[in-house]
Design a protein around this nucleic acid. Structure first.
Length: 506
RNA sequence: GGGCCCAUAGCUCAGCUAGGUAGAGCAUCUGGCUUUUAACCAGGUGGUCGAGGGUUCGAAUCCCUCUGGGCCCGCCA
């Protein structure tokens, strides 16, 4: 059974699956595990006929913690400590949080993940946290005791479970609570200002360890996946669970701690270090369903070493193998293959409506126009009369991947006309016979192929070695794309000239 | 100091929940194919299942200890 199905298999009541990511920087492939793990639970529930609500809480009231390396120091120093929803975007119009949220939401659209997006600033502004905040402010000693016991840390004497936003300087990290009378929290700020925050508005926020259980309480969350940073003993899930049960009188959601996604050879993806591939970029360099597949195929308890190079190509191969399993064209290797495919795919893909991505990688390096490409695809079993939007995107993605991440192993390009290549006697003889007759060969794939094969046979060569001669001359490699189709797309005069140049040097 | 996860073929992994003769893909090798989608078809090589102990008629699977690797908490979120 697929891990998502196994996780929800005993649930029959309506569930609310919640996820949360802070838009403090680029929302990256690593963050996708949060939202997609939740999404797969949601899907698994619905597929079992269990009612489910799926929400994503965007923590946009969180303060900017520091000036990240990707921010201009002079510009953002003044904003440290202010909510992400009230400081300017690194570029263009709008707020900081929306700047990073927008491409993420677009990416969710691209991979067909439908989720209710809730901004924490809005929750506070609309008073959704008011009741929870009031409960919390009336139970400070008990909460302090829980936090100190469960987490083992000592809280400051003036600690309070609420952080007011200073109405004068806008900071949330420099205020101290001095009193509480519903609905106002009194505070003083390091900037010298004293004031009141209305807990029914976005004039302050709960600290994380309280905000999390308050969210469960206010929104009725029953399932929540989270990163292992929250899952450590004495971590925020432990304290959250205790607060949920003892202060709010609710059950904590069913937890799932997931492992991190690493970038192969570079370690953990962190927005603060810049060691990231934003999710919005990944869907430009990989078929979008692969983002889902990457997360769906691996149990959350295992870390993922993501390799955007050759590893990505292998990943797509695997996805396509699972697709074949789903359509009964191939035997399953693992028992969840078909289900993993089903959870990953974006649209129904009938077997004759696509061409394998690996093959496409070759094709887009040979053909320049859609017509040529379509012809080549049809020879590979593509049944549509024109490029589908899906395949158009695949083509775009294949080109982008070649440009940015492809290893040399899968790339080829014509050698410059005057590049010297040393050839064996066999190579020379073969290339010469072709070069001498090149003007008489009909410049079509089949005719070229037949001509080359004729010369190979005439000279008693191994076909493989014979073809290699031409690859050496043209692209400097031992192997290459099917020669007839390849050459027919090159200008005959240029090919002739290239052969002459190489032969004159041997 | 504390916690979690991982370890099975050269590589990526399945198998572990409910113990019953060790699996797949890729790579590699051999053979086939009168012509290459960086193919295709058939077959082969390759593993003391990280180590040790325990439970059991029987352990990759359950329990304990250890080793190695990774990550996290003890600021903030």
């Amino acid at each position: 059974m697929h891990w998502a199905d196994a996780f929800v298999k005993d649930l029959t009541e309506k569930q609310t699956v919640s996820t949360g990511i802070s838009p403090s920087g680029h929302i990256h492939v690593g963050n996708m595990r949060e939202i997609l793990t939740g999404y797969f639970f949601h899907r698994a529930l619905k597929d079992r006929g269990v009612e489910s609500r799926f929400i994503y809480l965007c923590d946009d009231i969180d303060p900017l913690r520091k000036v990240y390396p990707f921010l201009k120091k002079e510009e953002y120093e003044q904003h440290v400590g202010k909510p992400l929803s009230s400081i300017p975007a690194p570029e263009g119009e709008g707020t900081y949080s929306e700047y990073f949220l927008r491409p993420f939401l677009e990416t969710l659209g691209t991979i067909e993940v439908k989720v209710e997006v809730i901004r924490s600033t809005d929750l506070y502004r609309d008073g959704v946290f008011a009741k929870a905040t009031d409960i919390v402010m009336n139970n400070v000693p008990r909460i302090r005791e829980i936090l100190e016991t469960v987490s083992g840390r000592k809280l400051e004497p003036n600690w309070a479970p609420y952080n007011p936003i200073c109405s004068s300087c806008g900071r949330i990290n420099s205020t101290s609570v001095t009193g509480y009378t519903f609905p106002y929290v009194d505070y003083t700020c390091k900037c010298g200002h004293s004031g009141k925050s209305d807990i029914r508005k976005n004039e302050g926020k709960l600290p994380w360890r309280l905000e999390w259980p308050a969210k469960w309480f206010a929104l009725g969350v029953t399932i929540e996946p989270f990163g292992k940073d929250h899952g450590a003993a004495g971590g925020s899930y432990d304290t959250g669970k205790a607060i949920a049960e003892e202060i709010f009188g609710i059950k904590a959601p069913l937890p799932l701690t997931y492992e991190r996604i690493l970038l192969k050879g570079k370690g953990v993806m962190h927005s603060s270090t810049g060691n990231v591939i934003p999710a919005s970029e990944m869907v430009q360099y990989a078929p979008p369903e692969i983002l889902r597949f990457l997360i769906a195929r691996t149990h959350p308890s295992r870390h993922i070493d993501f390799d955007p190079g050759l590893g990505l190509l292998n990943l797509v191969d695997e996805y396509e193998r699972y697709r074949n399993v789903f359509y009964g064209l191939e035997e399953a290797a693992g028992e969840d293959d078909a289900r993993t495919y089903e959870l990953s795919r974006l649209v129904e893909e009938k077997p004759d409506t696509f061409v394998s991505f690996r093959h496409l990688i070759t094709l887009v390096q040979i053909y320049t126009t859609d017509e040529q490409l379509l012809g080549a695809m049809k020879r590979s079993g593509y049944g549509e009369s024109k490029l589908s939007p899906y395949m158009k995107n695949q083509v775009k993605v294949a080109k982008a991947w070649l440009e940015k991440y492809a290893p040399d192993q899968v790339k080829f390009s014509l050698l410059p006309q005057d590049t010297k290549v040393s050839l064996s006697e066999q190579d020379v003889a073969l290339a010469r016979s072709f070069q001498e007759k090149i003007g008489e060969i009909e410049w079509t794939p089949e005719a070229i192929h037949n001509a080359v094969h004729g010369f190979i046979k005439e000279q008693n060569l191994e076909p493989k070695a014979g073809f290699a001669t031409f690859y050496k001359i043209l692209i400097g490699k031992e192997r290459g794309p099917r020669l007839g189709y390849f050459l027919s797309n090159l200008d005959r005069v240029n090919v002739q000239r290239r052969l002459e140049i190489v032969l004159s040097g041997n």
